[in-house]
Design a protein around this nucleic acid. Structure first.
Lengths: 254, 254
DNA sequence: AGCGTTGTTGCAATAGCGACACCAAGAGTT
DNA sequence: AACTCTTGGTGTCGCTATTGCAACAACGCT
């Protein structure tokens, strides 16, 4: 029952513009293009960009704008920056061991966003992982990230009896009740696996990464083709569990 | 002298708050502390933080707030996307200066892959390395890219005593132990050189390119015939070091 | 209990936003 | 040059959100 009518259109609009610019990176975005993308009036875009330029969030490049330096200055001091540098080496080792792609994900709202990926030599270099935020209830990393919450917190997000919006037929957690059940299993095992839930032909496993206090701050995830990796899901999970512990350790010691 | 009256207090205030939070990282900042730092009314801080939380720019951590993952995701994505175009200019200048071929490489799995090359006009092997991968332990760029990892992480990839598979006789890093030693030297110098390790008659030098948070994300590399370039390896490395810094700087500061 | 500290919320005045129309600068085209 | 077409920037005005002060609620402390 928090006051939700407290909304700042300005901030939302500015973020929308910045993300539109970021999504088009490295191509500088022109004024009109952004107006189209965000569906706002050109006058608003013009004035907003002017402000964002003044504040260093955007930067002129030719006849368009790109993301400015101030964002980097802030991003440098985020928890994610430390997390990535702590996890990168471990992920590297696991890529070598599994020969499959690894992801480092965090929860934002109800979405899972990937903040770092490591691919094996034979994989494609994923360039598009930033915008791809997946729903949390149907991915292994999402369930792992949710597993830090209490049952009633989860049920508040996903009501027990109600069918979750957008749950595909393959998904094993179509209601909040089922989700809580899956999460109990994750809490017991310390890892989560999914088989062809999010995408056909794909399997995945995830383990939680905790901070010094034990709360879950991120998830380590491996995704691979069903045929190639199904039998390795459990061993890989156990391996990742150990890696997650080492990441926690190096997070607290730095 | 244009738009001085166009100042949006909201954006400025929000940025001021976010930066205050970032500056205190990793210690979560409480409401009142931020009011003091920014010299604003606590009511404004309270409401602003509530908005910033809703938008994922900030995150609750205990009784305070930290910077959320959203900004990091934007920064990370745009940095990668713009890396090649930012490096191209510097590489072009270095090609001119060295009259040798330059490569921009990243690590994928345990292989080094070349994502961009610049060759002098007389270059025979102009495009031959694009997308080609090489083992990381025996190339200068590979060692540079590994130099962001801890010793124990490297030793997990390459056990200390065990002879590395595929290491040719010329290779100076035949065991994990030797590799760690070589990497220590790279970390100390800020560059890596190899002489006829990967291919007979060929020498090379590499320097790391770091992202906004200091993580090594790519390597700048020059490869040349032994006879022609051996005496220039060190000066070229120093030159490339400066170029690498400029690349990072050009992306992260105005 | 009483007290100090800390975060949230009413409320009037005010400042900024959103939408539409208009203006200015270029780039072709004839 | 004048003509159009495109693109970015401004003027204005009704309307809504923000501001700053205050009172209020929620703790923690002796």
């Amino acid at each position: 029952m928090v006051n939700t009518s407290l909304r700042n259109n300005g901030l939302e609009r500015d973020l929308e513009i910045i993300e539109a610019v970021a999504a088009a990176s490295p191509v500088p975005q022109r004024n009109g293009e952004l107006a189209l993308r965000t569906g706002r009036d050109k006058s608003q875009i013009s004035r907003a960009i002017s402000r964002l330029l003044d504040n260093g969030l955007l930067l002129r490049e030719g006849s368009g704008v790109i993301v400015g330096p101030r964002l980097y200055a802030i991003a440098r001091f985020t928890f994610e920056a430390r997390l990535v540098s702590a996890a990168r080496g471990e992920m590297h080792g696991l890529v070598h061991k599994f020969s499959e792609t690894l992801h480092l994900t965090v929860l934002q709202g109800l979405e899972v966003i990937t903040i770092h990926s490591e691919s094996p030599s034979h994989g494609f270099r994923a360039l598009s992982w930033m915008g791809v935020s997946a729903p949390s209830f149907m991915t292994s990393s999402g369930r792992v990230l949710l597993s830090g919450l209490d049952d009633d917190q989860i049920l508040r997000l996903y009501p027990a009896k109600k069918k979750i919006d957008g749950a595909p037929t393959k998904c094993t957690t179509k209601t909040g009740e089922q989700l809580v059940g899956a999460i109990h299993l994750i809490q017991k095992n310390g890892y989560a696996t999914v088989i062809e839930e999010y995408e056909p032909g794909l399997v995945g496993a995830s383990v939680p990464i905790r901070d010094f206090s034990g709360s879950i701050v991120a998830a380590l995830n491996v995704a691979a083709p069903l045929a190639r990796f199904e039998k390795h899901l459990i061993p890989a999970s156990l391996e990742m569990k150990k890696a997650a512990l080492r990441i926690t350790k190096s997070l607290t010691s730095s």
